[in-house]
Design a protein around this nucleic acid. Structure first.
Lengths: 104, 104
DNA sequence: CTGCTGGATAACGACTTAGTTATGAAGTTA
DNA sequence: TAACTTCATAACTAAGTCGTTATCCAGCAG
């Protein structure tokens, strides 16, 4: 496996929030953790913004910003699709990050 | 190994700082990373506060507080010994934490 | 077009973080 | 005793985080 350079600090800052840890946990299984979606495929594209915001119990802007932090850190992938935005874990990147965390 | 409950958020907050990541890295090998100590055993008790502060390049109170954050998070053990305070990694706890991080 | 919904952004306030200087307690040395 | 060293703590400031409400844009339904 290649040794990829990763800046750990911004990733750890993104992870250092119980709200965001909770989102990551939920996104491990979107089907089990969110209501059924008529529009996007929860497996392929993830859960939509609003379901996550509702379950978090914070205002919509607050939830959106948590999601943006996760996206900016590379932990989550956003898929905007005509009006909705779906979020799913970036499992490849998360595995990479775990490898680096194991070298702490 | 038993499944120990660990609150990840405060630990991640402690880790989410390049300064503190640097300290943890240095403490992996106190003998290599710090000047020789006349007083305490660097292997057994770790490096003294001042060496760490000097190498960090911040004021003494700033360095002391970073170390306190690491101690409070359980990542580092402080050993006060008549006038000096030595710091070393808590490897057992760090391993435990890594196991939890792998379940992200 | 009008209105409704999903989502992003701006602006603001409360709180926390990270740095500084100043000070003080405890131990060592002359 | 006096002076110095090590370290912790208090007080202050600048900047970042996290919540809110208000606003705006895009897409869909009537």
């Amino acid at each position: 496996m290649m040794d990829v350079e990763i800046e750990l600090e911004p990733i750890l800052k993104a992870l250092a929030s119980s709200r965001r840890l909770q989102i990551l946990e939920w996104l491990r299984d979107p089907v089990a953790n969110f209501p059924p979606q008529q529009h996007g495929d929860p497996i392929k594209h993830g859960a939509c913004n609003q379901y996550i915001v509702d379950k978090l119990g914070v205002s919509q802007p607050a939830g959106s910003r948590h999601l943006k932090v996760l996206v900016d850190a590379g932990l989550v992938i956003a898929s905007p699709r005509k009006g909705w935005t779906y979020y799913r874990r970036d499992e490849a990147r998360i595995s990479e990050i775990k490898r680096h965390l194991n070298e702490l």
